[in-house]
Design a protein around this nucleic acid. Structure first.
Lengths: 343, 343
DNA sequence: GCTTTTTCTTTACGCGCGTAAACTTTTTTG
DNA sequence: CAAAAAAGTTTACGCGCGTAAAGAAAAAGC
């Protein structure tokens, strides 16, 4: 590697023997120049280390290669996992993804959308806070920036929505539980941050009734994103105050169940299927830690791969459609039951 | 809000009645202009929505307001938590933090450092993979970009290091365990990714010997960042093959302990202090989920706040010192014992 | 070999803002 | 209130690159 440091595209054009506009084309899309030219550029690239200045590149380009990924709460391994998948696919496609977390706060979500605007992203993948989102702000953002919603749907916003089918979750857990023992009560937060929770409640009622069973819901108080703690406290109350009408509990999501199981353990209640077990507990999401609860949690799993694949596929379509689809579409993926020891 | 959309600083200068260079100064630092001028600018800002183009801003500026935060594995809630703290403080200081995760992979860590270079960050806060890092690459990066290391120290790299004092962790856990029951065996991965693990092992030996006890270490195989699974498998082997010489296990970190406890549960071994308990288990880190293990995990906690405060403080110092300290300093914060039910 | 098509070169301008210099206005100071 | 200091205005140039237009060169087609 020669020692003369290349300062800009002009200089690099000089040492490579190719004109600057052609170099510019190359960096925009290497396949857009003739193979022989490409070879010469890449040869020069190995001799003289040079990287174009992103700021100068993005300044005039109508479309950058930036992709914004926004999740509501990164401390939840569920989102970390899905974000990781999406990030990787974007990188592989030559894009520049940036991950943001609203940390459960509306103000932060709004700030992120503001910042994102000035990043001039080619597309944004947004998993909104849900109930906690500032609908007007999100709506304004979606008008200005090509956005695909995932995980939490906000009716009518964004160019498309990709997520899991909440009915599929609940129908599988409920039918399994009802088939193998007493029908479940539904354990949830009374004011869930996430719209999926409401859909799961509705689905629970529907499925129970279709089985000729009487739905029974336990709604616990609690705000914020500390679901495990909320589940724990709720379980303590629930187990203390209540003569159980059934021995089967279906939690709205795994994180509530983690707290619930912890409370059961502390109270000396054995959870599981076998003899000597006082309770069965199941939930939804297949949280990365659910395999390590005591006992291991029976749950219904997202199709992580299908969802993240589809999100990215939609993103690419969107970029090719100039940032706008003729029609807003919703894609819902079915879930699958994961049997472990807790139910 | 008037409807004429402002396209650039020139136009905004016109409608606000202030010259463009002054407007430019204002956006660089609002306090650098006279209060009366600031008021006029901010009044105009409310009438005409205008945000300067970051790309054009950063193009010529010697120093951007970008801050890079790099962690080895974002799916570990420990890093999510500390990243959240740091992000918030940067935002409050008017900086522009961007979070990256190497997802446990060296190639990705290198990619991130490459990208970060072209972001021209004013500073980078780097928690390296550790053993998995490409030392040469990180070293080159640190020469070009003002970097502060945290969590994992790599000797000599970066302008400073901020982390927790591993000796403090281990001395507290070991002395507590030895005082209240049998001395602990040390349960760890044989080839830990993180340098902290090695320091904890050394500290364990040292503390045990200083108490006149014989150190005993169980090293389990396993690669990658799925510590819970590794801990689970390790525990299964350990519990099967081994006649326990002691009933007390000290895990190198909480995530291993989560797996360990899960295995104990599956094997019907009761963990805790009371009568009827077969084992005591403790660990280090105070992972956000440790409160919900069965039983709740006794552990030694990082001083999250002190660490993230110090990291950011160092970052600000670094920016004021033109990106370079005369001397590399290491700051180690003591940990504190968190007593729960597992030991 | 000649024409057509593709690719590259030359030339030129603009993006939105940073910033330096010289000058003017406003504020502070004694 | 005059002088000094501080803050603002005008003017001008540059950053590194995108990109359009016109012409030259190379590749492809027949």
């Amino acid at each position: 590697m020669t020692e003369d440091r290349i300062r800009n595209m002009e200089e690099f054009a000089a040492v490579s023997g190719i004109s600057r506009p052609t170099i510019s084309k190359y960096f925009h899309d290497p396949t857009s120049v003739r193979a022989s030219t490409r070879a010469r550029i890449e040869a020069a690239l190995e001799r003289h280390e040079y990287v174009p200045n992103i700021y100068a590149m993005n300044q005039n380009r109508r479309l950058t290669k930036n992709i914004g990924i926004v999740v509501p709460y990164l401390a939840d391994p569920f989102f970390t996992e899905i974000a990781r998948n999406i990030e990787r696919r974007c990188i592989d496609a030559g894009l520049w993804p940036t991950l943001f977390s609203a940390h459960g706060q509306q103000a932060l979500e709004n700030d992120i959308l503001d910042n994102l605007r000035s990043l001039k992203p080619a597309g944004v993948l947004l998993a909104p806070l849900g109930r906690g989102s500032d609908r007007a702000e999100v709506e304004k953002f979606c008008r200005d920036v090509p956005t695909i919603l995932f995980d939490s749907n906000i009716e009518g916003l964004g160019e498309a929505f990709v997520g899991s089918d909440n009915f599929s979750f609940v129908s599988q857990s409920v039918t399994y539980l009802a088939r193998t023992g007493s029908p479940p009560v539904f354990f949830e937060m009374s004011t869930p941050a996430n719209p999926n929770a409401k859909k799961r409640r509705t689905a629970y009622i529907e499925v129970m009734e279709s089985l000729g069973l009487v739905p029974e819901i336990v709604s616990i108080k609690g705000d914020g994103w500390g679901f495990e703690e909320i589940g724990y406290q709720g379980a303590v109350q629930f187990l203390d105050q209540r003569s159980l009408s059934t021995d089967t509990v279906l939690c709205s999501n795994d994180r509530l169940a983690i707290g619930f199981l912890s409370a059961c353990y502390d109270k000396g209640l054995r959870v599981g299927n076998g003899a000597g077990c006082a309770l069965r507990v199941a939930a939804h999401d297949d949280h990365p830690f659910s395999r390590f609860t005591c006992p291991a949690l029976t749950t219904v799993a997202h199709d992580y791969n299908a969802v993240s694949n589809k999100v990215v596929e939609m993103l690419f379509d969107l970029m090719e459609s100039d940032g706008h689809f003729a029609q807003r579409t919703e894609y819902l993926f079915p879930a699958h039951l994961v049997l472990r020891d807790s139910a």
